[in-house]
Nucleic acid binder design. Structure first.
Lengths: 365, 365
DNA sequence: CTGAAAGCGCTTACAG
DNA sequence: CTGAAAGCGCTTACAG
């Protein structure tokens, strides 16, 4: 029984009729119509409906309108699982990460979701422990079993060449967010951490600081090499050499920031400024300075990195480098959704910016 | 062509053979075997394999062993999309929330993922804006289109009766995390925020504080009523009445904590202790106190709520209430996975605990 | 521009 | 304890 009007009449359901006829009452169909209902009620084949769903140009405009109108009326949306089964891939994007700060994860999620909104794709979170031998297996199984449409990799897992290789082998698309171009442009979003590190150096040098301290992240993080390296390079360019014993390898944690500052503030001459490679460690510097009775920025200027909410919540508010993390997430997800043909020749790039607040000033004479 | 040995020989792939025969080489099948391959290679029907997958008791132990052995050898795991299509529901759990702190979201995610690990279920994140009229529609569409197995609701969306009703109507299971039992026991995890608020009051009273200030969250949050209400009740029980003008309605943000403290610290007599209903606002109290040259805890004791990382990163370290958020997430997810028959009569309950650190002491004489 | 048939990888309902 | 048939809601490959 086919209803060829584009706007089916509402029918009163009678027991006898409804028991035998295929349901065609828009009310009962609400929210659970299938491609078959759309096809039957518009009088076209389900293949044609499928073409409309997939934006095929091979559909007569009138036919398309008719189909779209009914879809809208019934609130129909195709079943992602059925499409996925037929397509042999899902409409899920995976976000894979290894224990960055909460703010980083959440901002990244918001950014990715910005791009995914109304796309029919959903975001599946997958934290992992990259220090474990078999973590790559875990990610591979996750990607393969869910037949992910793509994966977003953020530091530090984004820096793992073996992970990227594993994903390539099973044919899962990925975007790596990292501070240098580790991969072909279509798989990368690059954050210019080096440039930002240099900016921090230029800024502190221009204020007049000559004795500086540096608290880095773990050596195995690429971001540490870039942020810290950029800082050292910036100072060197301006004729300041930072001796190795004025550098401290932290762990991107508050506690390591405290430890680093305890170490640096015990030096003689004492540094008049410290650049910490993330805000959590900078907060640790505050604690150590206060314990020693040093005022910020009177006795010590502090510059952090990330511009997390913490930065503006410290007292005095922290001068830091703003990383547009939500933007990074948005761009990465967009790339995953974009047509593969639209691959850029040059990797997308994002440059963090210095945000001057109240934790930095000229050193005392 | 059926291979009935439980451990199929490895075969060299020859072009002619492989082109015509169904693939049965365990190597080529790795990671992409289907239920048909398992059935064929073990010589049983796919229905029997399906029974093994679903832990049906109606399978001869030997048959089960044979099937499981081959599954393991081939690294087979059933396709969640195909199962989902047949089951008419997915293996996805939704986490729905409206802008709590980053730390809260992330801990909740970790907790839920703890419970989901190796279960075959995945976590899909769904932030939303409950101040928008149509946010319930958005959540409903999300749940219905993805045919979610269940949804975890955290404050404040967990407190929205209309949302719960909408989910019930479309037959989607949910667990609400909230500070009072709003729903039947099988759908609730209750956090005893009231009791924790009372504990904060008892603690400060026992130190000797008599003039106290309270900074609450927004009135529309149930947690505010419970935390703040418990605090007031605790004081009242000990004979202390906190006048209304020593209460300030904040917004659970750092800035509102600053504003609340500015207001309270200008009062005469000045409170010797402030209870802030979350740590972010407590951090705001620090800022306001420092600006006024008041020392913590010398001039002012401060107690927060949440025990976020911030609490131990402030200086002095913040006395606060520890909420076991990760536990909450784990329990909620477990309930969603559990057999519906195992519904408890009494809602699961979690009681936050006071953590004394360095921001509180006896008031000056 | 359109459609009938077969198939994606599973499960349900039924029969034995 | 086991299996053959039909079906979940879509798409591909082919034909017109």
């Amino acid at each position: 029984m086919t209803d060829t009007t584009s706007r089916p009449r509402r029918r009163v359901r009678t027991t006898t009729a409804s028991a035998t006829a295929a349901p065609s009452d828009p009310v009962t169909l609400a929210g659970k119509a299938t491609i078959n209902d759309i096809a039957r009620l518009t009088g076209v084949s389900k293949k044609t409906v499928s073409r409309v769903i997939n934006d095929s140009p091979l559909v007569h405009p009138e036919t398309r309108e008719k189909v779209l109108a009914l879809m809208k009326q019934l609130g129909y949306s195709p079943d992602p699982q059925a499409r996925g089964l037929a397509f042999r891939r899902s409409f899920l994007i995976g976000l894979v990460y290894d224990n960055p700060t909460a703010q980083f994860i959440v901002n990244m999620q918001y950014g990715a979701l910005d791009a995914l909104r109304d796309s029919g794709y959903e975001l599946v979170v997958h934290p992992c422990d990259s220090s474990k031998e078999d973590y790559i297996d875990g990610v591979r199984r996750f990607a393969q079993q869910q037949k992910l449409h793509g994966v977003i990799l953020i530091p530090r897992v984004s820096e793992d060449e073996q992970l990227a290789t594993a994903l390539r082998e099973i044919g899962v698309r990925y975007v790596r967010i990292a501070s240098i171009p580790l991969d072909q442009a279509s798989n990368m979003v690059v954050t210019h951490d080096r440039r930002a590190g240099t900016e921090a150096a230029n800024y502190l040098e221009s204020l007049g600081h000559r004795t500086l301290g540096l608290i880095t992240g773990p050596r195995r993080y690429r971001s540490t090499i870039e942020r810290g390296g950029g800082f050292l390079a910036g100072l060197a360019e301006r004729g300041i050499e930072l001796p190795p014993d004025y550098m401290f390898e932290g762990g991107y944690t508050f506690e390591s920031g405290v430890a680093g500052a305890e170490y640096l503030l015990a030096k003689s001459p004492r540094p008049t400024a410290i650049f910490a490679c993330n805000d959590e460690m900078a907060a640790g510097v505050y604690k150590a300075a206060m314990r020693r009775g040093l005022s910020i920025p009177g006795d010590l200027s502090v510059v952090g990195y990330d511009d997390s909410p913490l930065a503006s919540q410290l007292w005095p508010a922290l001068t830091t480098i703003h990383s547009p993390i939500r933007d990074l997430g948005r761009q990465a997800a967009q790339m995953l959704l974009a047509n593969e043909a639209a691959a850029p020749a040059v990797p997308r790039t994002v440059t963090p910016q210095l945000v001057v607040r109240d934790s930095s000033q000229r050193p005392k004479a």
